[in-house]
Design a protein around this nucleic acid. Structure first.
Lengths: 242, 242
DNA sequence: TGTACATCAGTGAACGCGCGTTCACTGATGTAC
DNA sequence: TGTACATCAGTGAACGCGCGTTCACTGATGTAC
C-alpha cells in the first residue's frame, strides 16, 4: 500500500466523517458534495476523484451504517457468549437502541425517510439489511431449542397469508425456524424499532421522561412473556404500583 | 363570506394539495413555494399572500396532518360506540395504520425525519400531538374499569424513574389512569407505530409479504394478552402451525 | 541512482438550474357614501 | 345606482445563494528502465 493509497483512504474517511457532521447538523437529505468540499478547504470537483456522484456517496454511507450496526450487534453477541439466551437477547435488544442513540443520523439514513431523488441500489442494500439481525435469530433459535423460550398462546397460530411469505423468506435467507418463532422475532423487532423511532424523533420522552428506562422495562416485559427471565441487571430498579 | 374570501380559501387548499403532491413525489424535505407556484401557473412571490414563509406552510401542513389523524381516529371511535372495548381498541389500532397507509407523506411529516432547517413551533405542535390518542386512552380506561382488561403480570411493576414522569404527564394532560395501564397503552402505541414505520419504509413487507395481515395478527395477540378477545373479525383467517 | 513517462489529486471557470425572499408595480375586487 | 377610495391578488425583476456536474488544466506522486 503506497503513500498515495493511504492518503486516499484517509481522504475518503474524512469525506464520510464530514458528511456525517453535515447530516447531524441539517438532516440526511442535505448531504452535499460542494458543502463537504468547502469544509475540507477543497474545490467541489475534487471530490469526484473519490465518489462518482453524490448518490454514490450516499450509498457508501448507507452501506457503512448497515455494516456498523451489524458489527455492533455481533460484538455484543460475542461478548455474551457464555451467558444465558435471555441475557443475550436482552443485550442484543439494548444494543439496537444503543447504536441508534449513538448514531441517530445513520439510523435515520437506514430506517427513516428516504432521501429525495435518491434510490438505493437494492442488490447492495437488501442483503445488508438482514445482517444486523442474524444474532437475534441465532439466540431465539437457541433459546427455543433448549426449551427456555416457550411460545405464548397468543402467538401459536399464524395467519395463512403470512405463512407462505415467511416460507419463501426462510428459503432465501437459508434459515429454518418454526414460523411462530419467526413471528415472535418480528414482533420483538417491531417493538424495539417502534421505541427507538419514537425516542429519536422525540415523541416518547415527552411522556415517559427517560426513554432508556422505558425501553429496558418493555424488553423485560417482552422476555418475561417468553419465559425468559433476567436477574441481576441494572434494569431491576423497578418498584411496584397499586 | 365574500367571493374573494371563498377564492382565498380555495387557493390555500390548492397550495396545500400541490404541496402534498410534491412531497409524495420527492419527500417531505422538498416542499418549495416556487415549485408550487410554478405548477399553479403563478409567480413565486404570489404565494406570500397566503403564507408568510415556507416554514409557515410546513407548519400548516403539520397541523392539518395531526388534526386529520385525530379526526380519523375519533370518527372510528364514534362509529364503534356500541361495540365492546376490545373491538374499539382493535378498530383504533387499525385506523392508525390505515391513516398512515393512505397518507404516508403526512405520517412522515409528523413522525419521520424532521425537515432540514425547519423547527416546529412547540406550542402549536405538542398539544396537537396528543389528540389522536385520546380515544385510545378512553377505551383502555373503559376496558380497565369494566374489568374486561386485565393487566398481565409482566407489566404490573413500573420502574421508579418512569413513574415520576408519567405522573407529571398525567397532570399536564388531565388524565388519571393507573400507571400500569398507561404503560400498557404506551406499549401498544410503540408496537403499532413500529409496524407502521417498518411497513412505510418497506422493511416489513420484505419478510411477511402482506404487512396488513401481520399487523392484524400482532394486534390480535396484543389484545388477547390483555384478556380482550375479538371474534367475528376478518382477521380470523388464521391457521395453526405445528 | 537518475531519468522519462504514466498516473493520479486537485484547481478554477463554466453551465444550467432552483431556491427563499424583497420590492415597486398594476389591476381587480370590495366598501362607504 | 353611481362614484371615490381602500384593500387585496398577483406580476416581474432582482438579490444572493447553493447545488451537481463537466471540462481543460497544473503539479505532484509513483513506476520502469
Amino acid at each position: 500500500m503506497t503513500r498515495r493509497e493511504r492518503w486516499r483512504d484517509q481522504t475518503i474517511a474524512e469525506i464520510k466523517a464530514i458528511a456525517h457532521q453535515q447530516m447531524t447538523a441539517s438532516g440526511t437529505a442535505s448531504i452535499s458534495l460542494n458543502a463537504i468540499a468547502r469544509t475540507m478547504k477543497m474545490s467541489g470537483p475534487a471530490l469526484y476523484r473519490y465518489f462518482a456522484s453524490r448518490d454514490d456517496l450516499v450509498t457508501a454511507l448507507i452501506v457503512d451504517a448497515f455494516k456498523d450496526l451489524a458489527d455492533a450487534m455481533q460484538a455484543v453477541e460475542s461478548t455474551m457468549a457464555t451467558q444465558s439466551s435471555a441475557q443475550k437477547i436482552t443485550a442484543l435488544c439494548l444494543a439496537y437502541r444503543e447504536w441508534a442513540v449513538v448514531h441517530p443520523v445513520d439510523f435515520q439514513l437506514i430506517y427513516g425517510n428516504p432521501i429525495p431523488g435518491y434510490v438505493a441500489p437494492a442488490e447492495v442494500t437488501v442483503p445488508l439489511a438482514r445482517r444486523p439481525f442474524d444474532g437475534l435469530v441465532r439466540c431465539f433459535w437457541e433459546a427455543y431449542q433448549s426449551g427456555e423460550l416457550s411460545i405464548p398462546p397468543e402467538y401459536t397460530s399464524v395467519p395463512a397469508s403470512i405463512l407462505t411469505h415467511l416460507a419463501t423468506w426462510q428459503l432465501e435467507t437459508g434459515h429454518d425456524l418454526p414460523d411462530t418463532l419467526l413471528c415472535l422475532l418480528l414482533s420483538t423487532w417491531v417493538r424495539i424499532h417502534g421505541m427507538v423511532m419514537l425516542e429519536l424523533f422525540d415523541h416518547l420522552g415527552r411522556v415517559v421522561g427517560e426513554s432508556a428506562a422505558f425501553y429496558r422495562y418493555e424488553i423485560n416485559a417482552l422476555l418475561q412473556r417468553l419465559g425468559l427471565t433476567v436477574q441481576d441487571t441494572e434494569s431491576t430498579d423497578t418498584s411496584t404500583t397499586a
